[in-house]
Structures are given as structure tokens and as C-alpha cells.
């Protein structure tokens, strides 16, 4: 479905009037869903409107060990819209245990394209220690138009000091994409007994980042990494960011920025953080409410909600 032409576009007030009054006809060819998307998009961009949020840490599908309320892409999108999320970067939970990541990524791309009233941007999974990742990367970029790829070193059982990581970073950088690394997905204390995963040591990333200038890496669910030795040199590259999903502690964001977090000694700069919820595994409300738990000013909130993410990835079109 193509986007309506500018002449078909409605401002939010007109749309709402149209929705409330059946006698006011919508322009020919303008569907309810496209106008709603436009109205919401315009709403979020209006100068006096609350800023919309880019959620950098989403998945579609069920958790391998549990059905999730918002696992279906449509259900997830509806939930995101309820909370003013205007764009999401989504991986697929299938990637944790499927070996055919190419098919996983293709299904993910189709699922995201099927959401026409929200920008759900697929982030394909690669495993750099399995054969064929170069072709998977090409498909992610050229066929599925993905802006980034996501790594799952704990679930795919490799350490980040592997030389293939550097090759992958170089290949990703050459395509103008960026990398997300899932550090934790679930508290290891409650893993299914069949799982035995090594914790991810992020220290080797520093050398990879030095070897591949300009590669950008986001660490997802990475509170554990913030307490690892060597994190300071990784942060100093200014090409590593974190999401908010598992940053624990009362007022965690404000205290991390102030350098007085309850248990983490590392001080973060505002540019190190982007909104990410780990939904639908975590409640979306957790990361959202975390924004408000600290007394942050509006400019800080806007940077966390969308500014830092937009710096990495400009807005994509809403498919509808």
C-alpha cells in the first residue's frame, strides 16, 4: 500500500473530526489506518506535542519458553502506539535457537512490513561463528533493507574475542549499518534447566572498535556489562550505547548520569543511552516509567526518547 499523496493528507484535528462525524467524508483513497498513522505522526511532530519515542530493543514472536501477551506483531504495534512509541527496532526471538537465520530474518522482515501504521524496523540476526553469515548480512542489507544486525553471543555460544567479530564489524560498517549485541535476555537464575549460558564479557569489544573505526555498537540489556572491568575504555570510544531495559536501581538513569548509581561505579554520558524496553518480554511500562523515575529535564528526556536514536538512524517511512 502506498502512502497517500500530500493532497490526501489530513491534519490531526480534521482527522479526529472525520472519525467522530461520519458525514465528513475522507478524501478518495484515504483509508482509516493511513490517516490514523498520519495523524499520529503529525501529532508527534507538532511543536507542542509530547515527543514520540523510538524503542531500540524489541523482539517479535514468542519467548522460546513462554507465550507472551504481545508476541504477535500486530498486538505489539498496538501496545507500542498506546504509549507513544513511534518507531521500534525489532529482532526475532526465533533467532535464539534457529540455525537457519536467513529464514528467520526473512520472516522478521515480512512481519515488520505487515505493520503499516507504525515504523517497525527489522534488525536481522547473524552468527559470525557459523558459516554463511556474510550472505546473511548481504540479504539483511540488500533484500530486507535492515539498518542494523543483532548478535546473540550467549545463545549462540561464542565469546567476543573471536576474530570473526572484527570481520563482521568491518563488513557491517562497509554497508553503513550498525550492530546490536544482546548481553542478557533473561536472569540466569531462572533459566530453563536445559540452558547453560556463559555470561558475555564485553571487554574484547574495545579492540574491535579500535580496529574498525566508525562502527557503532549498541549493547542491549547490558547492566551487567557496566560493572565489568574495562568498561571505561569501551565507553571512551563514544561509539557504544546502551538501552534502558534492565538498568536497575531507584532513579537509575539520573544516578548513572550523575555517577552516583547505587551499585554501578561507571558514569555514563547522556549520549550513551537510548530508550529500549525489551518488550514484549519485559513490560513496556518498565522502561517508560524509568524515564520518569529520575528528575530529568525535558532536553534529557527528548534525547533518551528519540534524539540519540535518531542520531544513529533517521526516521524511516511508515509503510502505510
Amino acid at each position: 500500500m502506498q502512502s497517500p499523496s500530500p493532497s490526501q493528507a489530513l491534519d490531526r484535528r480534521t482527522f479526529l473530526k472525520a472519525a467522530a462525524a461520519p458525514t465528513l467524508a475522507l478524501p478518495l483513497g484515504t483509508t482509516l489506518s493511513t490517516t490514523l498513522a498520519q495523524a499520529q505522526s503529525q501529532d508527534s511532530e507538532a511543536p507542542d506535542a509530547p515527543p514520540g519515542i523510538v524503542d531500540t530493543n524489541l523482539h517479535v514472536g514468542d519467548w522460546p519458553f513462554r507465550h507472551l501477551k504481545y508476541s504477535a506483531p500486530r498486538a505489539l504495534a498496538d501496545k507500542l502506539k498506546q504509549h507513544r512509541i513511534v518507531e521500534g527496532w525489532a529482532g526475532s526471538f526465533e533467532a535464539l535457537f534457529h540455525k537457519n537465520l536467513s529464514d528467520v530474518n526473512a520472516r522478521l522482515a515480512v512481519a515488520c512490513r505487515g505493520i503499516r501504521d507504525l515504523s517497525l524496523r527489522p534488525v536481522g540476526a547473524l552468527c559470525p561463528v557459523w558459516p554463511g553469515w556474510e550472505e546473511d548480512l548481504r540479504r539483511c542489507h540488500e533484500i530486507h533493507k535492515m539498518p542494523a544486525i543483532r548478535l546473540y553471543p550467549a545463545y549462540h555460544q561464542y565469546r567476543l574475542d573471536r576474530p570473526e567479530i572484527r570481520e563482521l564489524f568491518a563488513a557491517v560498517q562497509a554497508r553503513g549499518m550498525f550492530v546490536q549485541v544482546a548481553i542478557d535476555l533473561e536472569d540466569p537464575r531462572v533459566h530453563h534447566p536445559a540452558l547453560q549460558l556463559e555470561p558475555v564479557d564485553v571487554r574484547p569489544l574495545t579492540e574491535h572498535l579500535q580496529a574498525v573505526p566508525e562502527i557503532r555498537v549498541q549493547l542491549l540489556n547490558a547492566q551487567m556489562a557496566l560493572s565489568q572491568p574495562g568498561i571505561a575504555s569501551l565507553l571512551a570510544t563514544r561509539r557504544v550505547t546502551f538501552d534502558l531495559a534492565n538498568l536497575e536501581g531507584a532513579g537509575a538513569i539520573g544516578r548513572l548520569l550523575a555517577g552516583n548509581h547505587w551499585s554501578i561505579k561507571t558514569q555514563l554520558h547522556l549520549s550513551h543511552l537510548m530508550f529500549g524496553s525489551h518488550a514484549p518480554f519485559f513490560p513496556l511500562e518498565a522502561a517508560l516509567l524509568r524515564l520518569f523515575e529520575s528528575p530529568l529535564d525535558r532536553s534529557q528526556l527528548v534525547a533518551l526518547m528519540q534524539g540519540n536514536a535518531r542520531h544513529w538512524l533517521p526516521p524511516g517511512p511508515v509503510p502505510g
Binding site: G249, A250, W262, P283, E285, A286, L289, R290, E293
Partner: peptide
């Protein structure tokens, strides 16, 4: 304060 109130309320 070891957990975020946001986490628990969510």
C-alpha cells in the same frame, strides 16, 4: 533502591 520502582510498578 537496588531495584527500580519503575520495574516493580510495571
Amino acid at each position: 533502591p537496588s531495584r527500580s520502582y519503575a520495574t516493580e510498578l510495571s
